[in-house]
Computed example of a mutant assay.
Amino acid sequence: MTPQSQPAVQDTATQGTSSEHDFDFLIGSWKVQHRKLVHRLANDDTWQVFSGTCVMQPLLSGHANVDENVMDVPGAPYKAVALRAFDPKKKTWSIWWLDGRHPGHLDVPVVGSFKNGVGTFFANDTFEGRPIVIRFRWFDISEDSAKWQQAFSEDSGETWETNWFMEFHRAQQ
Rank of each mutant, 00 (worst) to 15 (best):
4 Q>T: 14
5 S>D: 15
5 S>E: 14
5 S>H: 14
9 V>I: 12
9 V>Y: 07
10 Q>C: 08
10 Q>Y: 07
12 T>A: 12
12 T>L: 10
13 A>N: 06
13 A>M: 06
16 G>M: 00
18 S>I: 00
19 S>E: 01
22 D>S: 00
22 D>F: 00
22 D>Y: 00
23 F>P: 05
23 F>M: 09
26 L>D: 11
27 I>G: 03
27 I>K: 09
28 G>F: 04
29 S>P: 09
31 K>P: 01
31 K>G: 06
32 V>T: 03
32 V>C: 05
34 H>R: 10
34 H>Q: 14
36 K>C: 12
38 V>T: 13
44 D>C: 02
44 D>Q: 05
45 D>Q: 10
48 Q>K: 12
50 F>S: 10
52 G>H: 07
54 C>S: 15
56 M>F: 06
57 Q>A: 12
59 L>V: 08
60 L>T: 11
60 L>I: 07
60 L>E: 10
61 S>H: 11
61 S>P: 00
62 G>R: 02
63 H>L: 10
65 N>C: 14
66 V>A: 09
68 E>N: 13
68 E>D: 13
71 M>C: 14
73 V>L: 13
74 P>R: 02
76 A>H: 13
77 P>W: 01
78 Y>E: 08
78 Y>H: 14
82 A>Y: 15
83 L>Y: 07
85 A>D: 05
86 F>P: 05
86 F>D: 00
89 K>W: 08
90 K>E: 08
90 K>W: 00
90 K>T: 08
98 L>F: 02
98 L>Y: 04
100 G>H: 03
100 G>I: 01
102 H>T: 14
103 P>T: 14
105 H>K: 15
107 D>K: 03
108 V>T: 15
111 V>F: 00
111 V>R: 08
112 G>P: 11
113 S>I: 02
117 G>P: 09
117 G>M: 08
118 V>N: 04
119 G>A: 01
122 F>R: 03
124 N>T: 07
126 T>D: 13
126 T>N: 10
129 G>L: 04
130 R>F: 01
130 R>Q: 14
130 R>C: 04
132 I>D: 04
134 I>Q: 13
138 W>Y: 08
140 D>P: 02
140 D>W: 05
141 I>T: 13
141 I>Q: 11
142 S>I: 02
142 S>Q: 04
145 S>M: 05
146 A>I: 00
148 W>T: 04
154 E>A: 15
156 S>Y: 01
157 G>K: 02
157 G>M: 03
158 E>I: 10
159 T>D: 02
161 E>R: 00
161 E>W: 02
163 N>I: 03
164 W>H: 06
165 F>A: 08
167 E>W: 11
168 F>M: 08
171 A>I: 02
173 Q>F: 06
